[in-house]
Design a protein around this nucleic acid. Structure first.
Lengths: 243, 243
DNA sequence: CGACTTCTTGAGGAGACTCAAGGGTGGTGG
DNA sequence: CCACCACCCTTGAGTCTCCTCAAGAAGTCG
């Protein structure tokens, strides 16, 4: 992954200037490298930080008292990680590296200053947060009101859309560093049922998922099963007019 | 509801100054009144706005292609409504008045200017968004990984906590303007099953829920069933140091 | 090559859903 | 003032999706 991929996310809303990009770079503190499976931070840890994901995939998860867990989100290069924790005294989620990963920590006082110095970036981070809220809302709908096939289809659809956003060259065949157990934790299902659901999708010639290689055989069919609403970002965001 | 209740939410993070409160008041545009059941805005509507809920309860919901819907959140006086839509070209959710309601619209350019003029308020709105993200994450866990009894218990627990925050005088007995059908849409269950679950909770002497009057009989038991994680707001938020 | 994780398959069970219908309550209009 | 309608709550019976438990196969890493 190169710098380009990492800044793509920030350009999503458009309207950023060269000076804004430079300001973002100033946020970058010493890098931290993680091996696959390594944990960036544990749920409950005090004074949680925010990170910028430069390379690799990570996942944010929450453990449940009854022994299971739920995977909140999968992060890709260019994502801001740990923003929700900024409001909290203790980290709300555990962040795990799904692949070898590089992040840079953004310390909280720096972020505070940024809000004063660069309102455009502040507004951008604010809007990214709103986008994430909508994503969570849609996942809530998916998990709360659709069946297993639809949920798995929704996860694949969302991942594909996001991968394409980060790596535009992606085709119908791509790699996802998630186990079926992870997929179960993303959908609120059990591993066993996820396995059977994937087989069902393969039988119906929607997609294949072997090891961690996904191939989408029928885009339209997949979209239909997922039933995700269309979400278009605002083209003229709120800071239009901020000089 | 008085102004006090409405500003309580903003004081949650502490550290706001009189000038900040004044700046917030400046955001208040002409009021809009809604009758019970009236819709503030429909999902899909272009150029969605943000609102400040002054009086009454509202609910935000998303309709699902399969005919059902999911209730994303219940709002009380002092809540900012519709923030997620600021990132989107079209409203992601429908907002309905659960009771007679008064809101004031905050237009987007004003908000943009605010980010420039008052970074403390910007940071505050940013942190409120992070808090909401954590709330959504916890709901995802509740709906994705717990059974009906636990989900209903979680809804009651969260509502009670929030009511207490808004109206500190609240006891174990309070009113919730939600039907069992609404509760079903909050939990991802069916009306029938919600009804049976409530009866089960009454049998077990956890709570009663008749019409729209809830009485919590056993706080500890309810908390245990809900299994919600403890979430403490950061005491020294990121803008500490912003002069 | 052995230990571990991941994937796969089977059988049985249970929590939640569907369909259906009756009763209560509040609002509205004749 | 009563009848009617709409909405909400409640209950029953039957079904199905998804879960649990269990064990074996396949792949992966040291």
């Amino acid at each position: 992954m190169d710098e380009k991929a990492a800044t793509v996310r920030f350009l999503a809303f458009g309207g950023l200037q060269a000076s804004d990009i430079a300001a973002l770079k100033d946020l970058a503190n010493p890098l931290r490298h993680l091996r696959k499976g390594e944990i960036l931070r544990h749920e409950g840890e005090p004074d949680p930080k925010m990170y910028f994901l430069i390379e690799g995939w990570t996942a944010s998860s929450i453990d449940v008292p009854n022994g299971s867990r739920l995977l909140i989100k999968v992060h890709m290069p260019g994502d801001m990680i740990g923003m929700p924790g900024l409001a909290m005294a203790n980290a709300p989620d555990t962040i795990t590296a799904l692949t070898p990963t590089t992040v840079s920590m953004i310390d909280t006082p720096t972020l505070g200053r940024l809000f004063k110095i660069n309102p455009r970036i502040a507004a951008l981070l604010f809007l990214i947060s709103q986008e994430e809220r909508v994503a969570l809302m849609d996942r809530l709908v998916s998990i709360g009101r659709t069946n297993a096939v639809s949920r798995v289809a929704a996860v694949v659809t969302r991942l594909h859309r996001k991968i394409v956003r980060t790596f535009p060259a992606t085709t119908e065949c791509f790699e996802i560093p998630l186990t079926q157990s992870d997929l179960a934790d993303m959908t609120g299902l059990t591993v066993v049922h996820v396995n059977r659901t994937i087989q069902r999708l393969r039988q119906d010639k929607i997609l294949t998922w072997t090891n961690q290689n996904v191939t989408i055989l029928d885009f339209d069919g997949l979209e239909r099963l997922a039933g995700l609403p269309v979400r278009n970002l605002r083209s003229r965001p709120m800071w239009a007019g901020l000089e």
